[in-house]
Structure formats: C-alpha cells, structure tokens
Amino acid sequence: MSEFNWETICSVSDISKNTGVCALHNGDQVAIFRVGPDEQLFALQNYDPFGQANVLSRGIVGDVDGLLTISSPLYKQHFSLESGKCLEDESVILQTYMVRQQDGLVQLKV
C-alpha cells in the first residue's frame, strides 16, 4: 500500500468548531470543515454550482435526518459533507477531498 503525499493547510485550531475555512489546494478553492463533538474534518469544493460563486466555506453546518451537511449561504441547498451530494438535487455532487489531522495540523491529500 503506497503512502499518500499530504499538503499542510492550517492548524486545526485555525478552524472554529462547526465552521469552515477556505484554502487554495492544487489551484482549487477547497472548503474545510471541523464538525461535531469529535471535531471530524471534511473537505469539499468551495464553489456553489447553484449560486455560481466560491462561498460554501461560509455556509451553515447542520444535520438533516442524521446526515452532516453544509447549507449554501446563497440559495440554501444542502450538501452532504461526506459525499458532496446535494440533498435537493441528487444529480449535483460536489468534489470531495481526502483530509486528515496530523499532529494538530489539517492536511489534504495531494
């Protein structure tokens, strides 16, 4: 099994609990979220395909029927933090990224 290369984005402490930040990764804007009592990390594209703007990192973290979601700050569509799938239109799926916490740092797979 090969080891992945990881890019350090920020410290975990730079992301307030149940919020997101935006980072530039391989030329793309990525929204990174720190969620829940276990402070799980999620990363997905920051671009909202409905509002056509890079705003998802400023969305509202929530829970829809037990599924962790991010709600777009523009038109309020809900996206699964785990899969990127839009709950209102399942044909729309955001790109997700492998993210981890390593020694207090947030890292994305290169």
Rank of each mutant, 00 (worst) to 15 (best):
residue 29 Q to V: 00
residue 96 T to V: 13
residue 96 T to G: 02
residue 89 D to W: 04
residue 7 E to Y: 03
residue 79 F to A: 03
residue 74 L to R: 09
residue 82 E to C: 07
residue 61 V to Q: 08
residue 13 S to C: 02
residue 70 I to E: 02
residue 69 T to L: 04
residue 3 E to Q: 15
residue 84 G to P: 01
residue 69 T to C: 07
residue 104 G to Y: 09
residue 83 S to G: 01
residue 91 S to W: 02
residue 30 V to E: 07
residue 72 S to Q: 06
residue 57 S to G: 04
residue 6 W to P: 01
residue 28 D to V: 00
residue 19 T to S: 15
residue 26 N to I: 00
residue 31 A to L: 03
residue 20 G to D: 03
residue 61 V to R: 09
residue 53 A to D: 12
residue 41 L to N: 08
residue 21 V to A: 08
residue 49 P to F: 14
residue 90 E to N: 13
residue 89 D to F: 02
residue 27 G to L: 04
residue 15 I to D: 02
residue 98 M to F: 12
residue 94 L to K: 09
residue 18 N to E: 13
residue 66 G to E: 06
residue 35 V to Q: 10
residue 3 E to M: 10
residue 22 C to G: 05
residue 105 L to F: 08
residue 70 I to L: 06
residue 81 L to A: 05
residue 6 W to I: 02
residue 76 K to Q: 14
residue 87 L to W: 08
residue 110 V to G: 06
residue 90 E to A: 08
residue 58 R to A: 07
residue 20 G to R: 06
residue 64 V to N: 14
residue 61 V to N: 03
residue 81 L to P: 02
residue 91 S to Q: 11
residue 33 F to N: 09
residue 110 V to L: 14
residue 11 S to E: 14
residue 4 F to T: 02
residue 94 L to R: 13
residue 42 F to Q: 07
residue 66 G to Q: 13
residue 54 N to Q: 13
residue 7 E to C: 07
residue 11 S to I: 00
residue 99 V to T: 05
residue 107 Q to G: 03
residue 88 E to T: 07
residue 105 L to G: 00
residue 107 Q to D: 05
residue 68 L to E: 12
residue 43 A to R: 05
residue 28 D to K: 15
residue 27 G to S: 06
residue 48 D to V: 01
residue 48 D to K: 06
residue 36 G to A: 08
residue 62 G to R: 12
residue 77 Q to T: 04
residue 46 N to K: 11
residue 39 E to C: 06
residue 66 G to K: 15
residue 26 N to T: 00
residue 84 G to V: 01
residue 11 S to Y: 12
residue 102 Q to S: 14
residue 14 D to N: 14
residue 101 Q to V: 02
residue 106 V to D: 08
residue 99 V to E: 06
residue 9 I to R: 14
residue 56 L to R: 04
residue 94 L to G: 08
residue 53 A to G: 05
residue 18 N to P: 01
residue 97 Y to M: 01
residue 78 H to S: 08
residue 102 Q to E: 12
residue 40 Q to L: 04
residue 2 S to A: 12
residue 14 D to I: 01
residue 37 P to Y: 08
residue 109 K to P: 00
residue 98 M to C: 07
residue 61 V to E: 05
residue 31 A to H: 10
residue 76 K to H: 10
residue 83 S to Q: 08
residue 109 K to T: 01
residue 83 S to R: 10
residue 38 D to M: 05
residue 68 L to C: 03
residue 30 V to N: 12
residue 75 Y to C: 00
residue 45 Q to K: 11
residue 19 T to N: 06
residue 3 E to V: 03
residue 57 S to N: 10
residue 74 L to N: 04
residue 73 P to F: 13
residue 44 L to W: 11
residue 55 V to D: 09
residue 18 N to Y: 02
residue 4 F to P: 09
residue 28 D to F: 06
residue 32 I to T: 07
residue 99 V to G: 09
